[in-house]
Design a protein around this nucleic acid. Structure first.
Length: 466
RNA sequence: GCUCCCUUCGUCUAGUGGCCUAGGACACUGCCCUCUCAAGGCGGGAACACGAGUUCGAGUCUCGUAGGGAGCACCA
């Protein structure tokens, strides 16, 4: 049988880190086993679902490259199907109408809690067989077995057993005419032929109820795999307040989709000591059964390390479009400056993200906006600096404009003036950037372009003497 | 409160009874390299939550304790 997994987010916000990892694992599991990956939007919460959120999720999935084979399916378009299945259940005596108001249910819960019991529905209408009647409070409840237990072998958590006595008759159809989550997922997963249900472990407690519904419907129960949570640096639930949670925020912050994927795949899963995984390796090696049981914390520093790793090892030409996107987003006009791919080569050892790279690249795409007084005082305000700059101005005017020849010119100045490289590079660096920090001086000069470099050196001579 | 789940360096993890004086990676840190900043190379510190038991032998199996998490909705 073909393996079919699904990712089923509810469109109440952006795709967050935890959801992205769940989607990744679903995607990898289907890919490795030659199966299919289905995308389903669980939008039965009419209050909180929005079209914008649906689009945001689709965009994020696309940016990550997690392509689906089927869907997206929308639960709101399947109302008739849910209604039909629920009616069949009622006709078969496996579900029933109940008429308590929300207030009555609430009172029931509180009473149970007061007695030290688990809050459960008391089954008042279960065996009454009252004739169907119109009522604003009318819901359909599932007749959960009262005896025995539900056992399932979770692929990550292991064997889990649940006494039916702990479960109550959950509502499967609300008074507003919409199905509830626990019912809709089961109907969908059956109809869509899902064989592996991979989702967050906040759903573990729902699984026994769902399995009972599968049985009532006479359907084959799929395999389950419940993934542990991803916590923030402090070990708390990830929240917008403390860290970036939306995957698109990571794109905007200058991370590469593959770096994020690599980080996420290692968060809760491993293959020996291997840290770096290409997409193909992930697909070949990932196995949902190897996922850890415990929650893990999101560590931005390790993500940053991975991102720099890919910045350093990916082909600058293939990275260039993404970098150009960030430059454009920052309002940089690249037509009057160096090629983005050249800038990547010069800066990739010095930054962790494209965002940082854009900031450092500004020295080549615009005038010096700010002069570091300390740098000027230390490296420009002296006679040797002036001598260096003057020689540079002359010799750089007609050397071949490439890093290597430029480097030879600098060495020649050092030899003529009998100075160490530091005495040459720093004045030039301040002249070119206004600061004491930049990539190697030959590349810094090269990327500025001959005309701009000479202009800045000229200006620096004036500043040094003024 | 009840039910279920989790627990190896600061963090992500390796480890499936002897290969563990517990390995790797990020972070931190020392040295080297060096035109600045990085990057890189070579080192360093750092963990089996606790207690019983099973066993010749336990990070690995069992049971308790403690701590943490999730769920107990007409939300997904």
């Amino acid at each position: 049988m073909t393996v079919r997994t699904r990712f089923a987010p509810s469109p109440t916000g952006f795709l967050h880190i935890g959801g992205a990892r769940t989607a990744l694992y679903c995607w990898l599991e289907s890919r490795r086993r030659g199966g299919e990956f289905v995308l389903r939007i669980e939008d039965t919460d009419r209050e909180r679902s929005t079209d914008a959120a649906v689009q945001a999720i689709l965009d994020a999935m696309q940016w990550l490259g997690l392509n689906h084979d089927e869907g997206p399916f929308y639960q709101t378009q399947r109302l008739e199907r849910y209604r039909q299945v629920a009616d069949d259940l009622v006709k078969a005596g496996k579900a029933y109408y109940a008429y308590e108001s929300k207030e009555e249910i609430e009172a029931m819960r509180e009473a149970a809690m007061a007695k030290g019991e688990k809050p459960r529905y008391n089954g008042y209408y279960r065996e009454r067989n009252e004739p169907l009647r119109d009522d604003p409070n009318r819901v359909i409840r599932f007749k959960n077995p009262t005896e025995g237990s539900v056992v399932f072998d979770d692929k990550v958590k292991g064997r889990i057993e649940w006494a039916n006595a702990e479960l109550d008759d959950l509502v499967i159809f609300r008074s507003d005419g919409w199905p509830t989550y626990n019912f809709a997922v089961v109907v969908d997963d059956i109809d869509m032929g899902i064989t592996e249900v991979i989702r967050g472990d906040d759903h573990v407690n729902n699984t026994p109820r769902q399995i009972n519904i599968y049985h009532a419907l006479g359907a084959t129960v799929p395999e389950f795999a419940h993934l542990p949570m991803i916590l923030d640096k402090e070990g708390k639930k990830l929240s917008k307040r403390t860290s970036a949670v939306s995957v698109m925020e990571y794109r905007d912050d200058g991370f590469l989709p593959h770096a994020l994927l690599n980080y996420l795949v290692r968060l809760g899963w491993s293959h020996g000591d291997q840290e770096i995984f290409s997409t193909d390796e992930m697909i070949a090696l990932f196995d949902i059964a190897d996922v850890n049981k415990a929650a893990s914390r999101f560590d931005t520093e390790k993500l940053a390390w991975l991102n720099q790793h890919y910045l350093k090892t990916d082909d600058p030409q293939t990275l260039a479009p993404e970098f150009a996107w960030h430059l454009a987003r920052a309002g940089v006009d690249t037509s009057n400056g160096p090629a983005p791919a050249d800038v990547i080569v010069a800066l990739r050892d010095r930054v962790h993200t494209f965002k940082e790279m854009v900031e450092k690249a500004m020295i080549w795409y615009g005038p010096i906006v700010e002069w570091d007084d300390k740098a000027v005082a230390k490296h420009l305000k002296n006679d040797t600096a002036v001598a260096v700059l003057q020689q540079a101005k002359t010799l750089l005017a007609d050397c071949e404009w490439k890093p290597e020849p430029i480097h030879r010119v600098i060495e020649r100045i050092a030899a003529t003036l009998e100075l160490g490289m530091g005495k040459i590079a720093q004045p030039l660096r301040v002249a070119l950037t206004g600061t004491q920090v930049s990539p190697s001086i030959d590349h810094t000069l090269y990327l500025a372009g001959r005309a701009e470099a000479l202009t800045r050196i000229e200006a620096a001579i004036g500043r040094a003497q003024g």
